[in-house]
């Protein structure tokens, strides 16, 4: 198994603030489904920023798909992120004024690589989006609806389709189930697993909700990963 993502001796602090993250070693394998546990305030958001190349570590290496992010210029990092990472956020992460299909296709507008891969696999962008949406349980009659006309659960499935289109190597899901009721959480995660498998993507699932952890290949606690020990915030 080769690593999609690897962190070595990574250190990060916000300007004029004490060290926040100090991660000696961390790897995510191709196709792996990882549950990253982290309560709020544990540096979770900052870590996601680092993975996306929004912030750069002061120390250490962050390699994504074989490329060291810190060696890229900001514009190239943006490009690289668009090509290789799909994001799913908590909720309201669709553009309300676009229809469902328009939202799913957004990454293909900004990443030629993902657009090309989607076309390659499904013939056309629309087919690729429709295929993903149908697999995630959104029937065709919903595809032309405005995104904000859907229920929260449906919106999250649209967001998942958007993250998966064009088969990026890494899917980062940041608390994607927190707005869903308990029964639909597991269903959503299973759908997500299936699609990640089909696309050959690794999944990094970030949540504080431990009840979901047993479903994953591996569970990592950010507080144990991080050498900076911090007093537990309330």
């Amino acid at each position: 198994m080769s690593a999609v993502l690897s962190l070595t001796d990574l250190q990060f602090a916000w300007p004029q603030q004490p060290l926040l993250l100090d991660i000696p070693q961390f790897e995510l394998q191709r196709g792996e489904r990882l549950f990253l546990k982290g309560p709020s305030g544990s540096g979770k958001t900052t870590l996601l920023g680092l993975l996306g190349g929004i912030q750069l570590p002061q120390q250490g290496q962050l390699t994504l798909h074989g490329t060291a992010l810190s060696q890229l210029k900001p514009a190239a990092r943006d490009h690289f992120r668009a090509d290789h990472i799909g994001y799913i956020f908590q909720q309201f992460n669709l553009l309300p004024f676009l229809d469902v299909l328009g939202n799913v296709l957004l990454p293909c507008r900004f990443s030629q690589r993902r657009a090309a891969r989607a076309v390659e696999r499904h013939g056309s962008l629309e087919n690729a989006a429709a295929h993903l949406l149908n697999h995630l349980g959104l029937p065709s009659e919903l595809h032309a609806r405005r995104a904000d006309a859907l229920s929260i659960g449906q919106q999250q499935r649209v967001a998942a389709a958007r993250a998966l289109i064009g088969s990026p190597e890494l899917i980062i899901a940041d608390e994607p189930t927190s707005a869903l009721d308990y029964d639909s959480r597991e269903g959503f995660i299973r759908l997500l697993f299936n699609e990640c498998e089909e696309a050959g993507a690794s999944l990094m699932f970030v949540s504080h909700d431990q009840s979901l952890a047993p479903l994953f290949d591996r569970v990592v606690d950010l507080q144990q990963l991080n050498r900076v020990s911090r007093p537990q915030e309330v």
């Binding site: 514009a75 992120r81 668009a82 900004f110």
Partner: peptide, 16 residues
């Protein structure tokens, strides 16, 4: 801001 962040997350550059 949300709209902008969503655009950024799907690959839009700041200049976009």
């Amino acid at each position: 801001r949300r709209e902008m962040a969503i655009l950024r997350s799907v690959g839009a550059r700041p200049w976009h």
